[in-house]
Nucleic acid binder design. Structure first.
Lengths: 232, 232
DNA sequence: ACATACTTGCTGAATGTTCATTCAAAATAA
DNA sequence: TTATTTTGAATGAACATTCAGCAAGTATGT
């Protein structure tokens, strides 16, 4: 009897996601390290579950199974389901912010290059995964009725929006365009979110096509700076 | 005891939403009519609940309360919660489709006027309500993991998308623009959905500002046809 | 080395709550 | 009466949360 249970448990643990193995170089044993490793492992499993089953059908049992751990585990490492979900959203928001900040950094000091890099970053394969998009959408769906989610979903946040406004203003000055910078920046942000939404819905839309549509927008608005192939 | 319960029940029914009173001109009694009236009443209450509490916290009890009716009512008029939600989404999809088709109709035969009308329709106060947007978003959040929702959410459907592509192609021919019509149409649809998403999130964004941003896009892409104030 | 207590991470059965669904009975209409 | 609509208590299933106990380490004492 005991043996049987042990075997079953071991079998389940075989299903550990690749994410765990990637971080396996950190000792699985060390006190403090293990704690963070486990949390990350559970967050990854949560994203999986959100993507696979949607928000309303994501259960702690499913998360625990996905992580290859036992039922009580989430309430041990996080305090409640609510807190696990918030930590998950926080993680995604941090990751997203880090990604676009890095892209901006790497783009150098040219305004046009920066704008191009920000748009490209949104359709980067590291960020723009079916899995991640689905998880974002799950949170969006609940955000209106939950202030906490709403705050974090706006990780596509004030700073992000302000950056776009500033870049649009700079390009307007450079190119003498007859645009309203704020409205243009808003529309640009909206187009990228809208494309994310459609990517998730999973028609035949691909990441490349979506990126091309966003670029089409850039080219139309700032013809003196961009072509469909890149900077002028 | 009986009296007390009756009074409570009556009190609850006082809370009937205005939507019910609007349709009160249809007899509340007639056999067939009553059936449809009730269904509509429950669908409205469902939209209310989705907007107020989000998908995952919408319960049949809340819907019934919102409609001022008893707990068992939904399973009588619809067969299950699932079917109520599908009927609700179906209703919203039909309403949306009817609205943009009517707008297209009313716009006459000018291509530019038609495109302008379609964009305006999306930000019409009859369609673009906080309440409705929130309900849409609730469904979007669940759509990826539910084929049935996914199909209906694409009520912003193939035909809609095709209409935009056709209009963009026609304008391209008329104005000699150097655009890719398909990508432009996709971006245009995406911009409107993205703006809806942001309206829901409820920063300081208003319907008017959102509409202005969409118009900014039109003006930028088709400068020979549009100004910010309308057709040229 | 070995034994002992103490710590930490984890398990899984038990508990209680929330909720969709059912249905017998009541109200209302035909 | 008979048929239809509505009610609300009862039922049962799904789930988050709790917790007593196990396992594996780690520190302390001998």
């Amino acid at each position: 009897m005991f043996l049987h249970l042990e075997q079953k448990n071991t079998a389940v643990r075989m299903k550990l996601s690749s994410a765990v193995q990637e971080t396996a170089d950190q000792e699985k044993r060390g006190r403090k390290a293990s704690k963070e490793t486990r949390r990350q492992q559970l967050i990854e499993a949560t994203i999986d579950s959100l993507a696979k089953r949607g928000y309303s059908e994501t259960t702690l049992a499913d998360v625990a199974d996905g992580a290859g751990l036992s039922r009580g585990i989430v309430n041990f490492h996080f305090e409640s389901k609510e807190k696990l979900l918030i930590a998950t959203l926080q993680f995604m928001a941090d990751e997203y912010a880090a990604h676009w900040n890095a892209a901006l950094e790497k783009a150098g000091s040219g305004v046009a290059a920066q704008l191009w890099a920000l748009v490209a970053a949104d359709f980067d394969r590291r960020i723009c995964t079916k899995r991640k998009l689905a998880a974002w959408c799950a949170f969006w769906g609940e955000a209106k009725s939950r202030p906490t989610y709403q705050a974090l979903c706006g990780a596509r946040d004030v700073k992000y929006q302000e950056t776009f406004v500033a870049l649009c203003q700079a390009l307007k000055a450079e190119g003498g365009y007859a645009i309203v910078a704020e409205a243009t920046a808003l529309a640009l942000c909206a187009v990228m979110e809208g494309l994310w939404l459609r990517l998730m819905m999973g028609d035949g839309l691909t990441r490349e096509k979506a990126h091309a549509a966003a670029v089409e927008y850039l080219v139309a608005v700032f013809p003196a700076h961009f072509t469909r192939e890149g900077l002028k």
